[in-house]
Design a protein around this nucleic acid. Structure first.
Lengths: 221, 221
DNA sequence: ACCTGAACACCGTTCAAGT
DNA sequence: ACCTGAACACCGTTCAAGT
């Protein structure tokens, strides 16, 4: 009957472990998250972590869930216009993955997590409000969700590829320079588009894709 | 001056290593590819592989390049209608990743590979032929390419999640069942589309997304 | 030039032993 | 109930030594 409620303020908990994992992931990427590093940061033994999380996959899933939940809480849902609401939700995911690039690789690993379901539902609800026939809902929803997580993931991968501290626009200029030097007979399109690659804004381009899909959905009668 | 051209038929080569790696990846997934397993299959020492490839990243990149190159060689480019050609190229990528699910995770890791450039150009060339204003080319191209690789990657991830030998439609039915049991107040959309999730064909759904984007591009004047 | 395989510096995970 | 940290069975990569 003496249930101890006065635990040490710094007692280990799933929540504290997940937060420490996110800090390590944000600072050093996926490669930096080891149970030894995590145990050191939490001033405990590496085995202690296993009392609270099943394994590394579960830890990454919990960290992803945490980030997505936080991102979704920021996008309210107050927008009356379903198109505007879809843009807000999509940008919320984009920005969250941009801030935590390691999240991008996790979606594919655990796509049916609770937090993901909330994103799925949020998009689906707006698709329903878009005024397209019911038979088109599923494909319209699927295209949007696929694009949002695919694009955000790829963008995060690009960010991950860069050496930390490198200038993003310089790296992009490098790639664009490579495209500009391709054989004009074999790569006319990439040569032509190279300057736009160098100058483009990832966020604007992401949103332009959303708008194209929304425009496509608008043609379904 | 005695250049040996009569090497053993089974001499190690980058090509043989990459092929063995693909075989291992196809059979056992990304986790199965170790230098020890690869060396055993090639009947050599693990260190020998490093004479031909720089490291594991380079090996995965080479394997991915091989698969994409093969897939692209199968999609000719004979279609006159640019929309039809885009569908053929997209489906070619989809099927290649479906057959080699591990490829899906690699795109994000090395997006500027030679084989990828050929896919990029192939899509870009058709976008140009679509008859939209030049100012819209870059965003139209980007949306298509993002969707193609994002969707194919996510689909491959779903395949990877399944226990090997498991029935895909049974797994999908499981997830759909979970959606059908969600709280109707919180998840009306997911509940409603659950039956479609259980019945849908990944390939058809992928193509429906391509068609939505193409329809959206068609609205740009 | 190319191959061998032991050695090194790591991992994730387990588990007897502690409190 | 929860924590400790050594131990186990792996990794990728290196490198002296061979042919």
């Amino acid at each position: 009957m003496t249930k101890r409620t006065d635990r040490r303020a710094d007692a280990l908990s799933r929540e504290r472990i997940v937060e420490a994992a996110i800090a390590i992931l944000d600072a050093g990427g996926e490669g930096a998250l080891t149970f030894r590093a995590l145990a050191a940061r939490l001033a405990t033994g590496s085995g202690a972590i296993y009392w609270h999380v099943a394994d590394k996959d579960a830890l990454l899933a919990a960290a992803t869930d945490h980030v997505v939940t936080q991102a979704m809480s920021g996008v309210g849902g107050g927008e009356a216009d379903p198109r505007a609401a879809i843009r807000v939700i999509a940008l919320g995911m984009f920005d969250a993955i941009d801030a935590h690039p390691w999240v991008g690789a996790q979606f594919s690993r655990a796509p049916w997590q609770p937090a993901m379901l909330r994103v799925f539902e949020a998009i689906g609800g707006r698709v329903r409000a878009l005024g397209v026939p019911e038979g088109a809902w599923f494909n319209a929803w699927s295209a949007l969700v696929t694009y949002i997580f695919g694009a955000a993931g790829q963008n995060a991968a690009n960010a991950r590829l860069q050496a930390p501290g490198t200038d993003r626009s310089a790296a992009l200029a490098d790639i664009a320079g490579g495209w500009a030097r391709l054989d004009p007979a074999d790569y006319p399109f990439l040569r032509q588009v190279a300057p736009q690659l160098a100058a483009h804004d990832d966020r604007d381009q992401f949103l332009a894709g959303i708008d194209l899909i929304l425009a496509g959905i608008g043609t379904v009668r």
